[in-house]
Design a protein around this nucleic acid. Structure first.
Lengths: 337, 337
DNA sequence: CCACAGACTGGAAGCGCTTCCAGTTCGCCG
DNA sequence: CGGCGAACTGGAAGCGCTTCCAGTCTGTGG
């Protein structure tokens, strides 16, 4: 049955010969394309098994002009941005969707200059069948690069500026509004916000949602207190807020990491949460549930985010024209507010 | 200067023509190979710039028989294993090292059957220049697959069974021993262990280290209380331990997630940490520092783990024969023990 | 001034697969 | 039993790049 291959790597020619057909028939049989009789189809299958043949993906890619891979580009100027568990979940979702389309996932961490150059090359040289771009900053050179790309590009989260043709995003404004409204509904009137980086669209949109909700409630929005989405920056921002506005009674943090940081600062400052100060986060990562007290937060469907991004890309690769997608958020109430 | 390309995608032929050289010279110039005069080299460079030429990686791959990519395979039967921040850090390290060698990173989450099949295909069809395998379970079909692979394979963490030819690992036994010794040195005598899955080598090795240290100290090691490396399994294991051995005064958890889970159960059970029960974890992930109380833990150089794995693979791809590597661990004392 | 290394050059043969297309074979109806 | 499509087949032409190799050109020492 299982015979060790005569050559280190059998090629299609040998399969064809063994099956007693021409190379083209063998090829068609392999890709189960039409115009191959049942008998020859089986003969080819047998030969493949006997030889342990596996088609060479590179050769196939050259002939079909499809690489069979999709790139997921995570920009950000610091590779540590990738340490955010957010991305892991996105990847799980995207990977599953790509697997369905039988595409491989190339992961590009484009923090360094060198990394960006490589991404540009990839985009322009058709090194993949499509790309997903995430975590772009304002004026990120990746945006114009994407336009010159020789392949479909899907954005994960809109970049700052005009919305791209294809993207998946989360309802940042709506989520932030809901979080703020919730704080207000709990009787909080001096609600500050710890924003994410304001050179990202997510950072801005979440602040907009907060401001809208505050204004709608007839309250004064605080000026943005900027952090960079890390725990320590959240702690620092909270400390700054506490000195400037010692009387605040609510805080909305643009993500859970910063929310947890805020929690820490508040604890150290002797403020009770939620009695003295209520805190709401954004993301609903594992850390929110484990925080002390467990963090009320805006849940976003991260896995779906990755999945839909990949599906949109697959649709594009298949020549369809999908429409942009904005995923809903949902408030998860725990003990911090 | 920048002229829009005449054809959607200029090819090497056109570059050569424009530069007034033959295709082979153009190719050599591009790859800065020898046997090209300075003048022609420059002419080619100029033509490349003028045409906006980017070589087609697929064609190059077919000709050179190098894909320019390395695969990172994360096995595990559940894709959620990948949510562990551990992997994100490994990826950052590996990615940086691969970038230096100008290799792309293909990420394969091989949880499903389908995923494993795809990995097998990749391995056997030379879909990459090499592969890094992580999180293999006992009797994982990926191990024999790796042997049949047509490319170099580096293991990240030894699989259960005979050690593979090339691997990077962490000193699990030593780290666990140190953690246990530390607990003993703090006067703890009834030290239990919450093990990771015992069908992984890391899980087993850490238990061995614990047992060795206990025996060496003349104490009775507890039988393994197994968890699956998640927070909730740690909490559950701790609860079980508490009912069976209400008098224990120390716990070593095989990773931080489970350590944090143990912390939670202990708090809920009204045991003070570290006064009543001391707890030590393993990994030194962010969660350890944020835990309450901050978790004493065994630090492992995760970033270096990824980096060294990638470097080893690059060495193999370049025809060298690197030696396996075991990375040291280091105890980080915080408040939990 | 000639012969000869040694540096360059470019034609041509692949790398392994897909796919067009012209040609063949077969089944079936009249 | 002849003829006509439909179904099937395989030769051949690529996909875009690298690289071997035979041939050309230069400069130099004798």
């Amino acid at each position: 049955m299982a015979v060790d291959a005569p050559h280190p790597q059998p090629k299609l020619d040998e399969v064809a010969k063994l099956a007693g057909v021409s190379r083209s028939v063998a090829s068609r049989a392999l890709n189960n394309a039409p115009h191959v009789s049942r008998a020859k189809r089986e003969a080819v299958a047998r030969a493949v098994r006997q030889l342990g043949y596996v088609p060479n993906p590179t050769a196939r890619a050259l002939a079909t002009r499809h690489t069979g891979a999709a790139a997921l580009v995570v920009a950000g100027e610091d590779p540590s941005i990738f340490a955010d568990p957010f991305f892991a979940q996105v990847i799980v979702g995207a990977s599953a969707a790509l697997e369905e389309a039988d595409l491989h996932l190339m992961l590009c961490l484009a923090a360094s200059d060198r990394g960006r150059k490589r991404v540009e090359r990839l985009l322009r040289a058709k090194g993949a069948d499509g790309a997903m771009l995430m975590a772009l900053r304002e004026d990120d050179p990746l945006v114009p690069m994407a336009e010159r790309a020789k392949m479909p590009v899907v954005f994960g989260g809109r970049p700052v500026g005009p919305a791209p043709r294809w993207y998946v995003d989360v309802d940042n404004v709506g989520g932030a509004r809901e979080a703020t409204e919730y704080l207000v509904s709990r009787g909080r009137t001096r609600v500050a916000m710890i924003c994410g980086r304001l050179d990202t669209e997510a950072g801005r949109a979440r602040y907009r949602g907060y401001r809208d909700a505050m204004l709608a409630a007839g309250l004064d929005p605080f000026p943005p207190q900027e952090g960079d989405f890390t725990e320590s920056s959240g702690a620092a921002a909270m400390a700054a807020l506490l000195t400037e506005h010692p009387d605040l009674d609510g805080v909305f943090a643009a993500n859970d990491n910063m929310g947890v940081g805020a929690l820490r600062t508040l604890r150290e400052a002797g403020r009770r949460v939620p009695d003295d100060v209520s805190v709401v986060g954004f993301d609903d990562l594992a850390v929110a549930e484990l925080a002390d007290p467990p963090l009320t937060t805006v849940h976003q469907p991260i896995n779906a985010f990755g999945r839909e991004m990949a599906r949109m890309l697959v649709a594009l690769v298949n020549g369809q024209d999908p429409t942009p997608l904005i995923l809903p958020t949902r408030l998860v109430t725990r003990s911090s507010a």
